[in-house]
């Protein structure tokens, strides 16, 4: 499997993280990136607009 984006596009994303990744480390992550993309796609499936997150805000901070 391959990522949906090119290595050059991935390099842009990597730069945005601010992590000090060298070329070999970026390549390692790029080769595995398709697995992360698959998970991101799964959690972004349509949901009702009013679907609340599992964590709800509680003003009574403990």
């Amino acid at each position: 499997m391959k990522p949906s984006i090119s290595e050059a596009e991935f390099d842009l994303l990597a730069a945005q993280t601010g992590l000090p990744l060298n070329a070999a480390q970026k390549r390692t992550l790029y080769d595995a990136y398709w697995m992360l993309e698959g998970m991101i796609e799964r959690v972004n499936q349509p949901m009702p607009l009013d679907r609340e997150p599992a964590h709800t805000f509680n003003p009574e901070v403990r």
Partner: peptide, 11 residues
């Protein structure tokens, strides 16, 4: 993505 995962978590 994180927020969507939290919403999916409730489901």
């Amino acid at each position: 993505d994180y927020v969507q995962a939290l919403r999916r978590r409730r489901t």
